[in-house]
Amino acid sequence: MVERRSMLARLVPHVILCLGVAILAFPVYLCFVGSSHPQDVISNGQMPLVPGHLLTESYWLALTRGVARTSSEPVGLMLLNSLTMALIIASGKIAISIISSFAVVYFKFPFRMAAFWMIFITLMLPVEVRIYPTYKVVADLGMLDTYAGLTVPLIASATATLFFRQFFLTIPDELVEASKLDGAGPMKFFWDTVLPLSRTNIAALFVILFIYGWNQYLWPLLITTRSDMQTVVIGIKKMIVTQDALTEWNIVMATAMLAMLPPVAVVVLMQRWFVRGLVETEK
């Protein structure tokens, strides 16, 4: 700023920020350390603060076997379930909301505002307030323990629809007129103009929705009863048993690392899209 700052004053922000980074990273560091020590060392409460030598072993066991109990599934399978669910939710939400926003913005038809409000009001009905009736609908439709049951009820999203609507309103009207002059119909305009222009918005939204899908908890908890349909976020909770001596903490920690890796990697590697998606969808 304006004043000349002393050495100390220039150091303070770094100290505070490093402290913040350390506090945020510490739980994950301990988790990493925990995944590298044998179970009995952790259970005795004697885990050292530096990584041990069982790193590859824990991860291999987790991925291919899971915990040693009978009902347990390999984490590899759970990761696959999580990935499938996250991808279906993210692409499904984008697909159905981009076409519905296109309809609401570019067409004049009798029920336009009614349709818009109908979508808009779902903002006020998060799954947590309609848990059991929604469960019953899914059960009646025979969709328990299926990917459809896991994803379709979460796919309607007012946020994504509003997000695309905001963006479509910024597309200059001249483009529609030019397309009309060329004799192109609405769908050609959608494919040739709207969709290519929306690329960066789709990327930003995809990052946010992928994380949203991957991290779902309550819904998969209700909908999946078969252990081979479990997602990793659900699976990890079931690995912790009440009698602590029986919990294989090294496997649990390896699983936690594996469960965090995909969404964290998406945020870090696609940071620009992530920040944009987060800020824009909240408007």
Binding site: M47, V233, M253, A256, A259
Partner: peptide, 24 residues
């Protein structure tokens, strides 16, 4: 500073449980 946003709530719970589990 932004990556913890991506950690699932349940997984965050497990991480903190591991640090503060009374016996270990």
């Amino acid at each position: 500073l932004i990556w913890p946003y991506a950690v699932a709530p349940a997984v965050a719970g497990v991480l903190w449980l591991f640090m503060f589990q009374p016996s270990l």
